[in-house]
Design a protein around this nucleic acid. Structure first.
Lengths: 219, 219
DNA sequence: ATTATCTATAGATCTATAGATAATGC
DNA sequence: ATTATCTATAGATCTATAGATAATGC
């Protein structure tokens, strides 16, 4: 009623500070991940992307030829960040026979990954649901979680030969370990289903004991 | 070049057979689930919905006030279909001490649910990612999987008191059982990650043994 | 004459482009 | 004078509506 801020968009955003192209590009990507993670590719408009980045829509398209190119750019350079390092660490723990720590490390890596890159993991779910050829390429690259999967299969098979773990298909069992971690992290950290008032560390400990109990020989 | 079918949309769809409103409504919902499951709410156009149902866009809006109303209608009447029946069955197995069959039954119910209503489960993932207040209402209604969750918590706690299952937070453990089943079903049946060449029944058996081993006292 | 469907279209986005304007660095 | 940003807008959808047309049942 006072005429100042009632009119739509009277307060126009100030011209964005001029940045080097590579910096602006990166900054647009960072702010885009939150939006794409929330609403998906189709659900996110270039207007929203521009507003979030603090630039005009024209600027968005100056840096990325299409909206989808920006979407896909979010995954560049993030393919399996510290996966090799993790696998090395796991291998060392496995060699020392520290089974508890192996499983615990796998679970905490998953949990922390979802904490650190929550929006990116939401995006990944959207990409999975998307399923185009192009997008599945990105997935194959990104889901180098397979490095961990491969380690687990080998690890479980070895422990079985040593008579420590009970028999059973190592692929199915490795998949079970990862699946449990991923699903608990997904519901707890992406969907907010953490009704069971327990801390992450407690859940990890509980699940570790549970998984190891499941893997080990009873007798 | 032959002029007959080169022009866009020369072959016009014949007028849809006239149906009773309730039948048409149901049929539109059925065909919509596949589209919403594939592309989500925003990714599915009313044009696509009309084409899939074999009617005009006008007809879609005659039966549903908005696209979103159609989206939400897909969940009506499907809230926990045979959940009470399942829980009754589980309770009977539990009373007889048939632990293997309890777990196996839970897992096979999840697997079969994903097989039977694949598109609906894809939609549910989209809804989960959507997260608006309104949509979470639908979720709370639909995810009466909680009935099974509640049963499992009670069941695990009882078995712990009897000294059959090892100690541990029943909520976390029950969540683990469901999470494992849901995630394996999601990746295997919704995302097509079934690289490990094993039949459903074998996976269920393997996971059942694994889960029970994890739950039971070792000594 | 009542109910279902279709046609045509309004109005609101939404993506992307072209050309103008502003800022930087030589 | 080179590079980054913005403004303005074209063209393509996309949702939803209103009024015309067709089918059914009394």
């Amino acid at each position: 009623m006072l005429g100042k801020s009632t009119k739509k968009s009277v307060n126009k955003r100030p011209r964005a500070k001029r940045l080097a192209a590579s910096d602006r590009k990166q900054q647009i990507i960072e702010s885009a991940i939150a939006l794409f993670g929330r609403d998906g590719l189709k659900g996110t408009t270039t207007k929203a992307l521009a507003d979030a980045a603090g630039v005009s829509e024209g600027t968005i398209f100056k840096h990325f030829p299409t909206k989808k190119a920006l979407y896909l750019a979010a995954f560049e350079g993030r393919t399996g960040d510290g996966m090799e390092h993790l696998v090395t660490e796991l291998q060392q723990l496995a060699d020392k026979g520290r089974d508890e720590e192996v499983i615990q490390r796998v679970l905490s890596a998953i949990f922390h990954g979802y904490d650190r890159d929550r929006d990116l993991h939401r995006m990944l779910l959207y990409v999975h649901l998307g399923q185009s050829d192009e997008e599945n390429k990105v997935l194959d690259e990104t889901l180098r979680k397979n490095a961990v999967m491969e380690f687990l299969i080998e690890y479980i098979a070895t422990r079985q030969q040593q008579g420590v773990f009970r028999p059973g298909n190592p692929g199915t069992l490795a998949n079970a370990v990862l699946a449990l971690g991923i699903q608990v992290a997904t519901t707890g950290k992406l969907f907010g289903n953490r009704d069971y008032g327990v801390s992450d560390d407690d859940v990890i400990l509980e699940l570790t004991r549970f998984l190891l109990n499941g893997l080990r020989q009873s007798s």
